[in-house]
Design a protein around this nucleic acid. Structure first.
Lengths: 154, 154
DNA sequence: CCTTGATCTAAAGTTAGCTTTAGGAATTAG
DNA sequence: CTAATTCCTAAAGCTAACTTTAGATCAAGG
């Protein structure tokens, strides 16, 4: 039975459009923390619909689940988040988005310089300057701007 | 021995900063197609340095290897690409980048609307409109804007 | 009460993009 | 010529973000 403020994983899945398996996975990643009923089944709060919705949106922008978990950490833990709480976290989120778009734009502008000369050469192209690139990485998602160290083989 | 225009995988690795294993992987993905010497070792062309450099740059912008292979497909296959060829492909690349940045910006602006109301609700928020979101996907990389169908479990 | 349908857990599978490992050959330096 | 590098292939391993599978339990409807 689903009490007033408690919903099953199936209901949550329908409301968010997520797969049940994805929600269970998100729980292992600390993105939601449902309680259990007498039979051991998960019972979510209605506010988790919004919580997971936020996860979905942030993912659309390329944020990793780790990063999203950090963002969600700014929500109050002692009570159900209010609209104001969500507006706050959304602004933090937007700030990171702006940074991300700006970094992408800067990189694109550097590419422009390279189109002119057609070089794309390690020695001359601004895009290849290691420090330069590292500086652009900022807070964006790893697979958007890249973040791996180049390790030699063996 | 490395002839005038032929370089070994180790040399290519040093010139690009890539790991030898990565270059071999790129070969399996059709991003480079080295010939072999009498002993069976790979012999790349010096122009492959630029080719792989392009791969590295495109990856920084979040392009998948599949996508990059498509872009590289626009280069002439019968001869070594000239600076002009590279400038051409870079422009195609830039066009896609612009599209990508624009899509990201549009999504961000939609988020702005949601910050105001703090809703983040599936029923009301523009970000959740399925058609709306699908329309934004465009040509950007999958993990930047998301591209998976939501499949129910079971 | 009994049959569906929903859930549960644990473990294995999937894709992208590579790296690591193992066991051999080919090259190069001296 | 020999030792140290470099390179080769094939297969397995790794991370992220999930899905799928298998076998079992729970809950809801008639």
């Amino acid at each position: 039975m689903e009490r007033r403020n408690e919903i099953s994983i199936g209901t949550l899945a329908k409301r968010t459009g997520l797969a049940v398996s994805a929600i269970r996975y998100y729980e292992t990643q600390g993105l939601v923390a449902p309680e259990r009923n007498a039979g051991g089944q998960r019972r979510f709060l209605r506010s988790d619909i919004r919580r997971l919705s936020f996860v979905m949106i942030a993912q659309k922008f390329g944020f990793t689940l780790d990063r999203i978990r950090d963002l969600l950490g700014r929500l109050p833990q002692s009570r159900t988040p209010t609209a104001k709480d969500w507006a706050g976290i959304s602004q933090d989120f937007r700030a990171e988005l702006d940074e991300q778009i700006a970094a992408l734009t800067r990189l694109r502008d550097k590419l422009d310089g390279c189109i002119g000369c057609g070089c794309l050469s390690l020695d001359r192209c601004a895009l290849y300057n290691p420090d330069d690139i590292a500086a652009e990485k900022g807070a964006g998602p790893r697979y958007l701007l890249g973040d791996e160290a180049v390790r030699p083989e063996g």
